[in-house]
C-alpha cells in the first residue's frame, strides 16, 4: 500500500514539477538587459535639463512660464499679473543627440544647446547610471542700457557646460546630479565672478502612473556675494501627448545662465515664482 501511495505521490509531484519546469526553463533564458526608460517625464526636471532627450526625429515644443513673485501681494495678484516666458524647440537628431533653440523674454535672451547621451542605465544594472553631456550658449539681445560703456557682442554671451549623471532607483524614484560650469563674459558688478561652478541636484518621486513630485537644488561652489541658490519644488502631470510641470521656484530665469548663477530670490522672504512648463511632442519621422 505504502509503495503505491509513494509512487502516486512521486508522479503527482513530477507532473506538477514538469509543468512549472517549462516556464522556469524559459525564465532562465529571458534576461532583461534593455535600457532603462523614462527616468524623468520630461526633458527638464524643473529648470534643470534632465537626462531625457527627445527621441530620434521627435520635436518637442516647450513653453516655460514664470509668473511674478508671490510676495508682491494682492495689488500684483500675488505675482500673476506679471510673466516671463521662454519658448523653445528641441529636436532629436538621433535617439542620443538632441539640439535645441529658445528665446526668453528675460533680457530678450536667445539660447542654443546640444545634449548628448553617453551612457544609458540598463535594467540588469550592468550599467548602473545614465550619463549625458550638455552645452549651451546664451546671448542677450536687450538694447544696451548704459551709454557710457561700449556694447561688445562678446559681452552679451554666456556659456554653460554640464555633465548629467542620473539613476532611476525604482520605477518611482529617480535622482540626478549635474556638475556644472557657467561662464559669463560680462557680469553686473566687479564682485560677481565670471566663472561659476555648481553641483545641481534634482529628483522625482512618482506617486501615481501620471503624477510625480519633483525637486531641485543648485548649490554654487563659487562664492556668489549678490546671489542666492536656486531651490524649486514641482508637480509633473502627464496626459498623453503633453507633460505639464507646475512648480514653485526662487529663480526667475529659465535657462542655465540665469537660474544657476543669477538667482536672487529667497524662499523665506516669499520671493517665490509660481510657474509651469508645458511640453508637446511631435513625431516627425519614423524610427
Amino acid at each position: 500500500m505504502m509503495k503505491y501511495i509513494f509512487t502516486l505521490l512521486c508522479l503527482i509531484g513530477f507532473s506538477a514539477y514538469a509543468q512549472d519546469d517549462l516556464l522556469k526553463e524559459l525564465d532562465k533564458e529571458t534576461k532583461d538587459s534593455s535600457n532603462v526608460s523614462a527616468t524623468f517625464k520630461g526633458t527638464r526636471i524643473i529648470n534643470l535639463q534632465s537626462i531625457e532627450n527627445p527621441a530620434g526625429k521627435d520635436l518637442i515644443f516647450l513653453i516655460s512660464h514664470r509668473f511674478g513673485r508671490l510676495n508682491e501681494g494682492i495689488s500684483e495678484f500675488f505675482g500673476l499679473d506679471q510673466a516671463t516666458i521662454r519658448l523653445g524647440l528641441e529636436y532629436g537628431i538621433t535617439d542620443n543627440i538632441a539640439i535645441g533653440l529658445g528665446r526668453s523674454s528675460l533680457n530678450k535672451t536667445l539660447d542654443g544647446f546640444a545634449k548628448i547621451k553617453i551612457l544609458k542605465q540598463t535594467a540588469d544594472n550592468r550599467i548602473p547610471l545614465s550619463v549625458s553631456w550638455f552645452s549651451s550658449i546664451a546671448a542677450t539681445t536687450l538694447s544696451y542700457s548704459s551709454p557710457d560703456k561700449d556694447d561688445y557682442t562678446q559681452g552679451r554671451m554666456a556659456y554653460t557646460h554640464q555633465l548629467l549623471l542620473a539613476r532611476k532607483f525604482s520605477s518611482k524614484f529617480s535622482f540626478q546630479v549635474s556638475p556644472t560650469f557657467v561662464h559669463r563674459n560680462l557680469v553686473a558688478t566687479p564682485q560677481d565672478p565670471n566663472q561659476v561652478f555648481a553641483v545641481a541636484m534634482g529628483g522625482r518621486y512618482k506617486f501615481t502612473k501620471r503624477l510625480a513630485l519633483t525637486a531641485e537644488y543648485i548649490p554654487t561652489l563659487t562664492k556668489m556675494p549678490n546671489n542666492t541658490q536656486s531651490l524649486s519644488l514641482g508637480l509633473d502631470i502627464e496626459t498623453g501627448g503633453h507633460v505639464f510641470q507646475l512648480h514653485f521656484t526662487n529663480s526667475q530665469g529659465m535657462i542655465d545662465r540665469y537660474f544657476i548663477p543669477e538667482t536672487s530670490g529667497l524662499w523665506e522672504k516669499g520671493d517665490i515664482y509660481f510657474g509651469f512648463n508645458v511640453a508637446r511632442v511631435f513625431t516627425l519621422g519614423k524610427k
Binding site: 514538469a18 509543468q19 517549462l22 516556464l23 526553463e25 524559459l26 525564465d27 533564458e29 529571458t30 532583461d32 534593455s34 526608460s37 535594467a123
Partner: peptide, 10 residues
C-alpha cells in the same frame, strides 16, 4: 506542453 515568455519592454 507549450510555454511562451516575452519581455514587455522588448
Amino acid at each position: 506542453d507549450v510555454a511562451f515568455t516575452v519581455l514587455m519592454k522588448g
